[in-house]
């Protein structure tokens, strides 16, 4: 019986696989049509093949699904890149221009340029507390005789903060930066002077320090002035000036 069943199964498999000769095909077809046992075995066999075909198709679709997921993510990335490319170009140009500007500034900046673009010749008319009888130093300053101012100061045992300040400015006019710094530091450190001309001295000391390439002290004075909104030179100390001094310090 087992052998009969095995024979039946083998014949059915050959029949399904299409390897039977014509005569056998007809014989098996007749048996399937006539015998319920053969018909059931034939149906089971076809269902088994259907399961294989279904599995094969699922596998194929799953493989293509993975492939398409990769393709879609590549396309999405490509689309995203295409979308942002114009913005990237504009950003690149902008960065290039900004970098170029700073590059140009860095290589062309000098202490002399920074000093001259921020130095304003002191206007004597703005002097605070101008007296009816101006001192000899003041009179010489009014005549813009800066050499006379310094000679008068050299011959004087003691002088007012105003005279010292004018002497400092005269030094700057004569490009004697070291001398100017001495006068301005004197005013800043003078406890007796009641703070007269201290604010002005700070600003001009910073400029004199730039001219003598002492960028560290110059920067700390400029930052102090920048932080003090009430400082009379607060408006003069711009971000650009501080940036320029920083650049000078990097050179």
């Amino acid at each position: 019986m087992d052998k009969d069943l095995r024979d039946m199964h083998e014949r059915l498999v050959d029949h399904m696989d299409g390897v039977s000769v014509d005569e056998e095909k007809q014989a098996v077809s007749s048996l399937i049509a006539a015998d319920p046992v053969w018909a059931k075995a034939w149906e089971d066999l076809k269902e088994t093949r259907t399961a294989i075909l279904h599995f094969g198709l699922r596998q194929k679709v799953a493989l293509i699904h993975e492939e398409m997921k990769n393709e879609r993510s590549t396309v999405k990335t490509g689309n995203y890149r295409r979308m942002i490319r114009p913005f990237l170009s504009v950003a690149a140009i902008f960065i290039f221009l900004v970098a170029g500007y700073y590059f140009y500034r860095f290589y062309t900046i000098s202490p002399e340029k920074v000093f001259s673009s921020n130095y304003v010749t002191y206007d004597q008319g703005t002097l605070r507390g101008t007296e009816d009888h101006p001192s000899a130093v003041e009179q010489a300053f009014q005549k813009k005789d800066h050499v006379a101012v310094l000679l008068l100061m050299a011959g004087s045992a003691s002088s007012s903060p105003k005279d010292k300040f004018l002497a400092g400015i005269s030094c700057l006019e004569l490009k004697n930066y070291a001398g100017a710094k001495t006068y301005f530091k004197d005013i800043i450190g003078d406890k007796q002077g009641n703070g007269l001309f201290k604010d002005e001295a700070e600003y001009y000391l910073a400029l004199a320090s730039i001219a003598t390439k002492e960028y560290g002290p110059a920067l700390s004075i400029l930052k102090k002035i920048r932080d003090e909104k009430q400082h009379p030179y607060h408006q003069e100390v711009t971000d650009k000036l501080i940036q320029d001094v920083k650049m000078l310090s990097w050179k």
Binding site: V13, D44, L45, E47, T48, R49, T50, A51, H54
Partner: peptide, 26 residues
């Protein structure tokens, strides 16, 4: 191939709840 097919057929026959789906697929 014959043995594998037979093995699968037996596995499917042990799952009668799948018969209707197989018939539907077929």
């Amino acid at each position: 191939k014959y043995k594998c097919l037979k093995q699968l057929e037996q596995m499917l026959n042990e799952k009668p709840e799948l018969k209707q789906t197989l018939k539907n697929l077929l």
